[in-house]
């Protein structure tokens, strides 16, 4: 806790507004994403979680407010800007090509070449190293097509693909939504591995079991506002549910920001 307060968070979002026509999707949102911590972003449908994520990852541009990266103000105009800073997003649909194998997917768009041709051996070694570093050990061969993988394995590959490029912040949208018990376990372990490697991780989730299992910090959105963010230990299940459904809580956990 003390560390998180004194250290400059990797990403700082201040007073961010975003509207689509007359609809105000984000209203004065403040959010901190410190390195080496998992921040869970909770909220009901339509609370603005996706919009906030897309503003950070460059899909949308913010209308007002400021974004600081490592203490420096930055403007993220598109996804390429975000990638250049080290922000990678793993969307719910994962965006993997079923017909390509694991190595080909992990390097898609950034293939390594040797004398103009694909350097498959080099890419295979690098992909194997990354997977080993993340302790993704359940796949039989990194040369198998993604279509032959389980849901959890696919999620792991999508994450590995995201962190392969020296990324510093990984945003994951509902990473465990479609997974079984064992696979959820594997993905949560993977998230902890990322944190232990010093990355900032933001996980969007509806699943409070997962949130309390993996999150160091919890932020809750309600109707376009970020109503609370604090250490996970300050919350309990009921207080998170209260914040998600009413925007406030009468229980001891968390502190209200907006009222």
């Amino acid at each position: 806790m003390a560390v998180a307060v004194t250290q400059e968070p990797l990403l700082r979002v201040r007073e961010v507004d975003k509207h689509f026509g007359p609809v105000q999707a984000l209203y004065h949102v403040d959010l901190d994403l410190p390195a080496g911590k998992v921040t869970a972003l909770a909220g009901d449908n339509g609370a603005g979680k996706s919009v906030l994520t897309k503003c950070i990852s460059g899909v949308y541009q913010i209308d007002h407010g400021q974004v600081f990266w490592d203490g420096q103000p930055v403007h993220i105009h598109n996804t390429r800007d975000a990638s250049r800073l080290g922000i990678e997003t793993v969307y719910q649909d994962l965006a993997l090509c079923d017909n390509l194998d694991i190595v080909q997917n992990m390097f898609l768009g950034r293939e390594r070449l040797r004398t103009g041709l694909l350097d498959e051996d080099d890419m295979e070694r690098a992909a194997a190293d990354t997977l080993k570093g993340l302790r993704v050990t359940t796949v039989k061969s990194i040369r198998q097509p993604v279509s032959s993988l389980s849901g959890g394995q696919r999620q792991s590959i999508a994450v590995a693909k995201a962190v392969m490029w020296n990324s510093k912040l990984v945003i994951m949208d509902e990473p465990t939504a479609a997974l079984g018990v064992v696979q959820t376990r594997n993905v949560l372990d993977l998230i902890k591995t990322l944190r232990d490697k010093g990355l900032a991780v933001m996980v969007i989730s509806h699943n409070l079991n997962d949130v309390f299992e993996v999150a160091d910090r919890i932020a809750v959105m309600y109707l376009g506002r970020l109503v609370v963010q604090d250490d996970a230990s300050k919350f309990d299940r009921q207080s998170v549910v209260d914040y998600m459904t009413t925007g406030g809580s009468t229980r001891s956990g968390g502190r209200d920001k907006d009222s």
Binding site: L96, Q104, L117
Partner: peptide, 22 residues
């Protein structure tokens, strides 16, 4: 064996993934 070929397969497999890969 070339990037071009790889992208042809990627688009055939999942155009959205190919688009996001730049």
């Amino acid at each position: 064996r070339t990037r071009y070929g790889r992208y042809v397969f990627a688009i055939g497999g999942n155009p959205e993934a190919a688009r996001r890969a730049g």
